[in-house]
Design a binder for these strands. Structure first.
Lengths: 133, 133
DNA sequence: AGAAGTAATGTTATATAGTAACTAAATCTG
DNA sequence: CAGATTTAGTTACTATATAACATTACTTCT
């Protein structure tokens, strides 16, 4: 059985997967409105939250935007590399590094629950493009 | 000589330093309005940007909020530990770790410019408070 | 099956966050 | 000091997100 909510999730996930760059909630909203007419932000945000919980979508905190998960090694917290030039986002998984991070901040007695690691810079292809110029 | 803009910066910095938890831009705005009357968001955002550039204030990306820098080892990118219970934020500096991070994501040819590392969890004092209960 | 309760979704309205574009004042330069 | 340039103020707006309530669909009990 497919609930209405699950349909929104599926459709949004498909949309996000078509983009290699993060997509804003209101872009999603506008796109879906073209297809389905009237539609409230709430619907989008609810679907996006569910997708995040299911580990299908990352919220890019430093952009207020969303991107489909690439590596699906089951909800491993990811490191996002965001290119300032072309907007593309690469996902890396580095458990050791996040472990170190947990240890460093754990020294003061802090217990980590959620890691937000986002790095802004220039991606490989934009780097080489600029090197040529 | 103190320009008008610098006065806003000083006043906002003072305000942020009084709080150990991050403060939202519109909280700053509301507070300053009580003192100075009419005041536009632009004023606040301009001052906050300047403070960030001067390395006096961090923007907490995952909260859309601002906090005064604690460690002033000159604009070292910081790691922020954010307590979900009490809202307090601790700042850590770990150059080695950020170096590792740069290396990991640099493997694909990505060159990092700005690091956003924010960890949500429970701080030491909230941990012990909960352990007692 | 039908009534009663619960959970999921839709709807309306509003709160919160941030910026663009222009005006006015201050400062700098010759 | 006139003209140019930078800095700050003002107005209006756009973007992001959530609260609160209404409605619909689902469940469970009889």
């Amino acid at each position: 059985m497919t609930t209405r909510g699950e349909m929104w999730q599926a459709e949004i996930l498909r949309l996000l997967r078509q983009n290699h760059a993060p997509v804003k909630a209101y872009q999603v909203l506008a796109t879906l409105r073209k297809i389905h007419g009237k539609l409230a932000p709430t619907t989008i945000y609810r679907a996006l939250s569910a997708l995040q919980e299911r580990g299908r979508v990352h919220r890019v905190e430093s952009l207020n935007a969303f991107i489909a998960c690439q590596s699906r090694r089951d909800k491993q917290p990811s490191i996002l590399s965001i290119c300032n030039e072309c907007g593309s986002v690469e996902e890396s998984v580095a458990p050791d590094l996040l472990n170190d991070l947990s240890n460093v901040i754990g020294e003061t007695g802090f217990s980590p629950k959620r890691h937000v690691v986002e790095v802004h810079g220039t991606c490989a292809s934009c780097n080489s493009r600029k090197a040529q110029a």
